[in-house]
Design a protein around this nucleic acid. Structure first.
Lengths: 339, 339
DNA sequence: CTGAAAGCGCTTACAG
DNA sequence: CTGAAAGCGCTTACAG
């Protein structure tokens, strides 16, 4: 059984209230008394019960992080930023893997609400359907009445009136920039590997791609647009299919780095050289982007910074609903060359 | 302000006790009563206060995970296994990044104790000094008296008598196997890149390397043993130094995949081909090992499985102190060739 | 089947 | 500077 404050008080020969006071250091206590209490705490190896404390304060010192998969480097990077920033405010982070399942996401949200999390950060693309949005808005309201701050990272607010701050990512701008890079190199037949269907990030990145083509007056060939799911394997498969179908293309733009790595691997299997025969670009600038050979030209997304911003909005915020947009920028490495 | 159980009771026209009973479903309740309560819960969007509940049960539904860095794929893999298995028991996981700092590790342990975590899983190599071991053993005892189960993952118990289960990794066996692979290919001048000094994992892997050489009657050249710290950069630097010093070697064995990736990159910069000129091997078999070009020959470590095992020991365990050792095995890919 | 009451481990006005 | 008492939001014997 854990040691309680009452036992500490008994050993120190004072009242529980006094022990509480020296522990919290928010009231004057006689030096001699303090000494005795501190010694008792040490001797009994006492640690306050965080639940009893949370019951009084109705605050828990916990930040909930809900994401698809903490082992995915994209999410890991953001989670790390959140974790570090939260620790800086003496708060603990709870990581919850939703596997991209809305039902799991909602379940975690309820759990975190029950734990009276100080804040919840919801990371990653959201499904684009109306039902999800309605449910999300309801959950957001529930968290708010519980006093839990909500921050969305990399997804838009479910409705203009829903509570919660937003750290947006300039997905469209980055996609435009990297597509422009390919166009500048003379590429006209560019295959595009999308993210999973019906997700906000997937759409934003594709729109950026399409917009850049339009602005350059290059027609979009629907036959070169392939559905992926952000996994390495899906990028590899897509390019294999493209090749098997005998499609002509001189560049591949993948909606993230993992698919780009898969694409490179499929090209190499087919005896094609990157970038001499085909240029490849990714998105996210994950740490692994420099380990792929050739090192990936990609769009940098400041993952840790995004996590840090989320925590800042949650606790340092003005109290007003705020949206900040994290900038993205092109990083040119070795996987792209002039046509 | 959050809705309380008393308010739900008032709206449903029953006593708080009755609401508690329908919520927990562990007592008979009249169907009509149940209906009214459930409706009130829905209308008020009520969620039980996990802290109040934890205060009664002295259990929190929380699993603490303490590791160096959740963004590192090695830790991310194990954390994922823990998280999934914990969720399977309806428990939430708290991830704490200690940055490899013993002081931070201890601080998190105390925090988790205060939160009455059901279990704490401590992941990663431990420092080898006596002071750390003593402190660790004391913390282990503290957790035990709190009723928190402790599991060590990838590190040995601080003392034979310290409470806590262990999921060990066969680091030495894997290192022996991969070194043997290089020897079988005819390599005799093998550079070795170590992990950070004074860590259990570093030692175990190096011992495996040394043992394999000894058994083959190949002398160990201390000039070919370079200190790294498990980071990609340190692997790259080590090989650059080796090259600058004009050392002869036909293979590089890195104590993990990240350093192996760095080594490959340094070799390539110097105009050397892998594996034609120099063979390179890693350790861990991270997802990224297949993205490195050439794909890395390495030692597979069942990361997710290790996490799963940890949770199993914590909650399914016999109650007796148990150590299980996760097996490792050689994975031959493209970064090694015959001398 | 249901309610009144005690209690989990702490904190904090309220007295002194 | 310190203690007695009430209360945070729940659960669970104890009665009925």
């Amino acid at each position: 059984m854990p040691v309680t404050l009452v036992e500490v008080a008994a050993r120190a020969g004072v009242s529980p209230a006094t022990v509480s006071r020296v522990l919290n250091g928010n009231y004057p206590v006689a030096e001699a008394t303090r000494q005795r209490v501190e010694q008792a705490v040490r001797e009994l190896d006492y640690v306050v019960n965080a639940h009893a404390r949370a019951l009084l304060h109705s605050t828990s010192g916990i930040v909930g992080v809900v994401l698809n998969d903490a082992a995915d480097p994209f999410f890991a990077g953001i989670a790390r930023g959140i974790q570090t920033a939260a620790a800086g405010t003496r708060r603990l982070s709870i990581i919850c893997n939703s596997e991209g399942e809305p039902s799991q996401e909602f379940a975690f949200l309820d759990l975190l609400r029950g734990h009276r999390a100080d804040a919840v950060v919801l990371v990653g693309a959201a499904p684009e359907d109306e039902e999800f949005r309605t449910e999300s808005a309801a959950r957001a309201k529930g968290l708010q009445t519980n006093g839990t701050r909500l921050v969305l990272c990399g997804r838009p607010a479910p409705s203009p009136s829903a509570p919660g701050d937003v750290v947006a990512i300039d997905n469209e701008g980055g996609a435009r920039a990297i597509t422009q890079h390919l166009l500048d190199l003379g590429h006209r037949e560019i295959a595009y590997l999308t993210g999973p269907a019906g997700r906000t990030t997937t759409t934003a990145r594709f729109v950026g791609f399409r917009t850049a083509l339009e602005q350059a007056g290059v027609p979009l060939d629907q036959g070169l647009v392939l559905g992926g799911d952000f996994s390495r394997r899906s990028g590899q498969l897509a390019v294999q299919n493209l090749l098997a179908a005998g499609k002509r293309f001189t560049a591949v733009a993948a909606a993230n780095d993992l698919m780009a790595a898969g694409a490179v691997s499929a090209l190499r299997e087919a005896g094609l050289r990157v970038p001499q025969d085909v240029s490849v670009v990714g998105y996210d600038d994950l740490p692994t982007a420099v380990d792929v050979w050739p090192a990936l030209t990609t769009v940098h997304v400041p993952l840790e910074e995004i996590g840090r911003l989320a925590v800042e909005l949650a606790f340092g915020g003005s109290g007003m609903q705020t949206t900040v947009t994290a900038p993205t920028h092109l990083v040119v490495r070795d996987s792209t060359a002039a046509r």
